[in-house]
Design a protein around this nucleic acid. Structure first.
Lengths: 339, 339
DNA sequence: AAATTTAATACAATCGATTGTATTTAATAT
DNA sequence: ATATTAAATACAATCGATTGTATTAAATTT
């Protein structure tokens, strides 16, 4: 299907295509009357600007690339919603990609986004990501990069929108302690992922503040899936004695734990109190409802996107490694409600 | 930041850029040795193909546009995940847009996607969408269109991936009847939206089959938000007498209803049994867990994307108005578990 | 009315890759 | 060794819009 071009409009009006282009872009080098003639003819012929051509010429794509581990995870889908919202307002398109937690895929995605000359990339890195060469290559190539949530520590010339995970971990743990817990298990993912490292650090600091021993046997590492939660709950009951609190680095695993504990008759929160992290929609609804740390995905998405848009306009913020720290909020619910 | 082009590779090797282009595309018009030299030089110079230029020349964008009402709704985010998965495998990018249920926005989005010359569009239309001119324009313009879930009935030359909503509505209602419900309220959204019309039709057919009267006072129309569920539950208790079953056209409203009923001491399912539609993750977790109709988002996304990809390859399926009907599955849970 | 300034438009190159045709080089047949 | 065919590469136009410079037309000044 052949689409109308500015050249056809030009020919129809017997003027030059450069004038048509300027008319359509509302340049003041074209007089009002001509603009109107061009607009009318454009409508008549059903013209829509070919952005591929426009972008090529202007050497920008008007597009932002977004990379998340998994689109369907609530936190990420709400982040995306926030990003899209901001980008839309600013006239940008958003290409969404999911790494599915695989670095190889992440690598390919980045190179694809670069080939498509996206104006910038927003990324929450995969759990597997240890080698960051694809990301540094990106920056060296001049594509601005903004991390949100899962980031790479110490990477220069990038923006970051992070949740204060240390604080979140601290507050959740402190809350458990204040509710009387003395032996608190921490469920986490590999500690070389920044966010988990930090939540763990918050956990440690809280124990320290209240003079509780840090016992590394109480720190259980997994992928934090619901099944992991199930499995680890069984392990806790069988192998660890006297555990009275669990702080899980995400809600999913916490819910897995709760399911298992409920099925075995353990009382929550009386026997074991539980706190999660993320505030998944499910957590408000499960019984007992789950105490958790809220991190507003939409807000983080908006902030990350704004950081990038700001860079497009002013151009000097990212090179200063701007980091925006979002304060998480402890949501106290029934899973820790002891008097 | 200046990026390497094929011309620079060509100059460095003292050959023509057309040969470089062919070498990079593995054309058999270039001999193996030359290909190797080109590849090596490309790596050396850090070349990445400019897809903007390539796409312009080849008059395609390698991109699929996706329009959903709201990204963060679980059903849609899982659809997107399915779409992205398929598109990625086939080497396509996915531009995601959310209409936020506003037609105006939907209209702008479509025109933007066309300007970006996406190769095809996958859309689940907004609730507001009554005037379809922007969609027909799209088709007339030669951009293939595939609807999923929320579609426009009778639109020619488009593909459709639909859930058999009539059947889903029927099964949910029949199940309530078999559980002894005699006076069943149906919560729905405006009936000019196809999916709601069809779920309602299933409801009606089930009543008919079991010789129950269809009473239009029992059909409550709203936007099906959680708040709507709350409000309508109050209304049901106050204004309608003897209601013993509720079939809600989505889970969200059903959950709103449950919250309200639980707070007023109404027993679920003993006093009122409840069935929803969509199988949101929350529904498995709420207490009592919610009986609902499952529609696998990922599956629908994959099917819709495949329909489009198939059209790209074979080119003659959409004009036959291919419709793929996905069978929903009733998930029986505690909210209807009477003996 | 001629000279100068300004407004409006036309010309032509360009963005980076692709592709049909032409040319050169190498391989095979006579 | 020459003619014929095939392989490899070069040339040049093109995709559709943008933009710096040149030109023409109109407006203003002297």
């Amino acid at each position: 299907m052949k689409k109308t071009t500015i050249h056809e409009i030009a020919k129809a009006l017997n003027i030059d295509s450069s004038t048509v282009s300027r008319a359509l872009n509302d340049s003041d080098r074209v007089k009002a009357k001509t603009k109107k003639r061009v607009m009318d003819k454009a409508n008549e012929l059903g013209y829509t600007r070919n952005m591929l051509a426009s972008n090529l010429r202007r050497n920008r794509s008007n597009t932002i690339g977004v990379v998340v581990p998994r689109i369907s995870r609530y936190f990420f889908s709400s982040t995306i919603a926030g990003i899209e919202e901001m980008a839309y307002q600013a006239g940008y398109n958003v290409i969404i990609c999911q790494s599915l937690e695989e670095v190889d895929r992440e690598r390919k995605i980045i190179s694809n986004l670069m080939a498509n000359r996206v104006d910038g990339i927003l990324i929450s890195v995969s759990m597997e990501t240890q080698d960051h060469s694809h990301l540094t290559a990106c920056v060296e190539n001049g594509t601005p990069l903004v991390f949100f949530d899962r980031h790479v520590a110490g990477m220069k010339h990038t923006g970051k929108v992070l949740i204060d995970d240390v604080r979140g971990g601290f507050e959740a743990t402190e809350h458990l302690i204040q509710k009387g817990c003395q032996k608190i298990v921490h469920l986490t993912a590999p500690l070389d992922v920044e966010i988990y490292k930090n939540r763990h650090e918050g956990y440690r600091q809280a124990l320290e503040k209240y003079n509780l021993d840090y016992d590394k046997n109480l720190v259980l590492v997994s992928k934090l899936s619901k099944a992991d939660g199930n499995r680890l709950a069984a392990k806790i009951l069988k192998e660890l004695d006297g555990v009275d609190g669990i702080f899980s680095a995400n809600d999913l695993a916490a819910i897995g734990v709760m399911d298992y504990l409920k099925s075995t008759g353990v009382k929550i929160p009386e026997d074991i109190a539980i706190a999660g992290f993320s505030n998944e929609p499910t957590s408000a609804v499960i019984e007992p409802s789950l105490t958790t740390v809220d991190q507003s995905g939409e807000e983080i998405g908006r902030l990350a996107c704004n950081l990038l848009l700001d860079y497009f306009e002013n151009g000097n913020t990212l090179v200063n490694d701007r980091t925006i720290m979002v304060q998480p909020k402890l949501i106290v619910r029934d899973s820790t409600k002891r008097k």
